[in-house]
């Protein structure tokens, strides 16, 4: 089971991983990935717009795809929207599996698909008051297509 949440507030990655594992003793590996707001060249804030009617369903569809490809893998996806400051977390993927190969692969798959198949758009705000929509990267498409 891989669950997905959409929220504006920050999250606690360690607490999410602990909650995912809970009292289970059949898991041998947990992988946690957190995407952060990076302060490139004077960036002061990042705002994530999304498609409210579609976003959560799409996150759940991506989660279901990972669960079907890596049976026995558990996971948590949290994706934030709204305004975030440098250093804040944007997205969390935690996976846990009996063995590390599945946990690593499922986490990487989830991030690659979140980058290219979830309806979010990032807008950067700069110290001089200007803003700029982030352009999609071809390398992200290539990363998603290899799965």
């Amino acid at each position: 089971m891989i669950t997905a949440r959409l929220q504006t507030e920050p999250f606690d990655a360690a607490a999410e991983q602990a909650a995912l594992i809970g009292a289970r003793t059949d898991l041998g590996a947990a992988v946690s990935f957190t995407g952060l707001v990076r302060a490139d060249d004077g960036l002061v804030a990042l705002t994530l717009e999304h498609y409210p009617a579609m976003t959560l369903a799409q996150l759940q569809a991506i989660a279901a795809e990972a669960a079907s490809r890596w049976p026995g893998t558990f996971g948590t996806i949290i994706h934030r929207h709204g305004r975030m400051l440098p250093g804040e977390p944007i997205v969390l993927v935690v996976t846990a599996s009996p063995h590390r190969g599945d946990a690593f692969a499922a986490a990487q798959f989830l991030m690659d698909w979140l980058k290219t198949k979830a309806p979010f758009w990032k807008r950067e705000a700069w110290a001089d008051g200007s803003t700029r929509w982030v352009e999609a990267k071809g390398s992200d498409d290539a990363a998603a297509e290899r799965w």
């Binding site: 498609y51 994706h79 944007i90 997205v91 198949k117 979830a118 990032k122 999609a136």
Partner: peptide, 29 residues
């Protein structure tokens, strides 16, 4: 483009859609 909340290609046919969203390539994650 997404048609009724499903990503669609340029040649996707439209059969009485209720909602069509038009946007740039996504940049989440």
């Amino acid at each position: 483009v997404a048609v009724d909340q499903q990503f669609a290609a340029p040649d996707t046919p439209l059969h009485n859609p209720r909602e069509i969203a038009i946007f740039p390539p996504v940049t989440g994650g």
